[in-house]
Amino acid sequence: MRFLMFGLILAPIAAFAQGPARDLPYRTFGNWLVGCDNTGACAALVLPEGEGPGRVYLRIARGGAGADLPEVSIVPVGGGAPAGGWRLSVDGGTAVGPLAPRPGDQTGRAPITARDFGTLLPGLRDGARLSIEATGRAVAAMDIRGGGAALRWMDERQGRNRTTTALVARGPGAPPASDGAVPKVPIPAPAPQDRLPRPPGVNAAGTDASCEAQGGGLPPGAAGRVTGATVGNPPPPVVRLAGGAFLYAYPCARGAQGPTSLTMVTNREGRAPRRVQFPRPGGAVATPANLSYAPESGQFGQSVRTARDCGEENRWAWDGLRFRLLSWTAMPLCRGVNEADWLVLHRAEPDPAEVPPPPDPPQRQARHGQGRPHR
């Protein structure tokens, strides 16, 4: 897939979302990190500790359908596995194993059977330390305090509390009726990118404002222009959106997330610009970092990542009126988790659709007594 890149980012990641913690689809519980997506699928990670080789982490993943069972594995940071496999135990209790990767799996991921998970589960809920041994010696240990709260939160997000499928608080209730299906979002075909107009002009006098300071809308009197932070930069990329509108991505600030863009959408004539934000649970993205566009799919992307194995990836598409979130994967903590195990926090599939009609313009109010009833 061909992407047009609107910037590069190599800076440390900042907080992903600006909304209250209760609105975020992920939470931490001590050394546990748990995240769920909009289909009800969840993953819980016991994060690796320390630095250097030999680090591992535990992953418990479960789909959102009522019949989905937990998929549990022990994963080495960066791949590789001991020849004899791993043995796991909690607080010196019964060990399970040896646990070894499937033949041909170069990642070193070792599945844990349902029987072995059942042995470990009481300790994961109430224990303090998960010990990992290989070839008869200890190779790692992880703090698992908070496991009961982490797994209970996961059960709650999936609607499993007090049901026969709960990991913590089991009860007589039936499993959730959800089928865990990925929702479809009506997205028109991408528009052609030929004969694009010039971007709106830049206000060279407005040097006292920055993209970040503009918040959710243009500053007063800025119709048709952008202020200070874009002065001296080359003309921004222009993308024709489905329905004929245009998006302009102005180079913005170089903050903690690296180069960001101020995005504006105009009408078919390239006029009447307005600020747009990219939706995401917990807080919209006002100035996306490393913004990209794929002409073949009409999808926009944001990529935020660091050399310490954390970051986020987002994809959005224009539905003819606004941007819709298609995917969000993230690793908010820089602890060495492999990218394949980053938290999946949102999923949607584009569904071919017609461009919706524009909303009716607001009616003007009557002036100087016009429209009043005659006496």
Results as ranks from 00 to 15, higher is better:
302 Q>W: 04
338 N>A: 01
351 D>Q: 12
339 E>P: 04
267 N>V: 05
307 A>E: 07
278 F>G: 14
350 P>E: 13
357 P>N: 04
260 T>W: 10
316 W>E: 07
297 S>L: 08
278 F>N: 03
284 A>G: 11
319 D>I: 05
304 V>D: 02
254 R>M: 06
265 V>M: 13
326 L>H: 12
358 P>F: 08
268 R>A: 14
324 R>C: 10
332 P>Y: 04
292 S>H: 15
257 Q>T: 06
317 A>W: 08
349 E>C: 04
315 R>G: 06
285 V>P: 09
339 E>A: 06
316 W>Y: 05
302 Q>T: 14
336 G>I: 07
344 V>P: 02
252 C>H: 01
271 R>W: 02
315 R>T: 13
334 C>N: 01
277 Q>A: 15
335 R>Y: 04
343 L>Y: 06
256 A>W: 03
327 S>R: 03
342 W>A: 03
249 A>N: 07
361 P>L: 10
284 A>M: 10
285 V>R: 11
289 A>L: 05
353 A>I: 05
339 E>D: 00
357 P>M: 00
362 P>V: 12
283 G>T: 08
266 T>C: 10
352 P>T: 08
355 V>L: 02
333 L>C: 02
333 L>K: 06
283 G>E: 12
319 D>Q: 09
353 A>H: 03
364 R>T: 15
330 A>Q: 01
348 A>W: 03
253 A>C: 11
256 A>P: 04
264 M>H: 09
280 R>P: 00
289 A>H: 03
291 L>E: 10
272 A>Q: 12
309 D>F: 09
344 V>H: 08
248 Y>I: 08
264 M>S: 11
298 G>M: 02
361 P>F: 12
326 L>P: 04
255 G>E: 04
360 D>R: 13
341 D>Y: 02
359 P>Q: 02
264 M>C: 08
306 T>Q: 07
324 R>M: 00
